[in-house]
Design a protein around this nucleic acid. Structure first.
Lengths: 155, 155
DNA sequence: GCCTCATGTCAACTATGTTGACTTGAGATT
DNA sequence: AATCTCAAGTCAACATAGTTGACATGAGGC
């Protein structure tokens, strides 16, 4: 089964380039994969996956966020949020309490264990970025940020 | 339901930055989304989705590719490939024939209709990249390529 | 006491992927 | 010619990640 490749389409495929920008297009694909690969492997070892990480990531940066706001930030339905969120609560990676005022909304926070997992998973991603930035220097990094901002703001 | 946001987590969330590289990390996420958003919408109108586009993209750049090689390049199982591939054959966006020699492998090719859809979908993605590159100039684009290559080669 | 609204939950569905087990059929080997 | 190998095709069961729709609960505001 493994003739020229190692595993899972990870090898930047040797495809003919039909357009000038095909290389860039493929780089976005493999870049996304490259950044998330190790983090996903780490999360899988913890019995978690990317949706759980996204929740942990957001709650880490918005302590006391409500469920409704979390749904908005993540861009998924509350039903889709429900299962991964409950798993994180059961595993005590998150806590939810109602505040004295605003008693209607629940406030989510990371526990220490949750913070640790969020940090390690995100660190895998940040280390990949760090290594790449180091390799190209500050000007290259600035160029990267500029391009990515332009693409992201494309909405 | 829509209070401060428009749709689906598309608004680059205002999250506190816990690390220097958090901004870059989020840019990768929103950049990926930004590049694929319009292409996905176009594909959905055609009753297709990203897996179908990936198949069309690869076959366009490797005419006469075999199913086994396609499985390798895409990094999915042949069973996972089976359904989207059959849909593309049924819709006559792809053809498969056995060659006179190498009679065991099937050779995949795009039809004209398939080529048209592949081009339009990929064009949506390339136009987003083009606009971003134009906005930052050649040096920024070069920096972007350098960083993305470093990340992609992270394997 | 009622209305609103955030939250929680249940069910049914779609899509995309996995593994495992098997059949089919062409080519090569003996 | 009989047999073996291997690409391809297919079926079943399952996991994950999402959707929509419907409805229950419970706190706060009026």
């Amino acid at each position: 089964m493994a003739k020229t490749s190692q595993a899972a389409g990870l090898h930047r495929a040797s495809l003919a380039k039909l357009h000038e920008l095909d290389a860039a297009l493929e780089l976005m694909y493999y870049g996304w994969r490259g950044m998330t690969l190790e983090a996903d492997a780490y999360l899988a070892k913890q019995g978690l996956s990317r949706p759980h990480h996204r929740i942990l990531y957001v709650v880490a940066r918005r302590p006391d966020i409500s469920i409704g706001s979390l749904v908005e930030v993540l861009g998924i339905s509350k039903q889709a949020l429900n299962r991964p969120l409950n798993l994180l609560l059961e595993r005590k990676l998150l806590t939810s309490k109602r505040s004295p005022e605003q008693h209607r909304s629940k406030l989510l926070r990371l526990t220490e264990a949750g913070r640790r997992i969020e940090q390690r998973a995100s660190d895998h991603e940040r280390q990949v970025l760090r290594a790449a930035f180091d390799r190209v220097g500050a000007s290259g990094a600035a160029g990267w940020m500029g391009v990515m901002e332009a693409i992201a703001d494309n909405s």
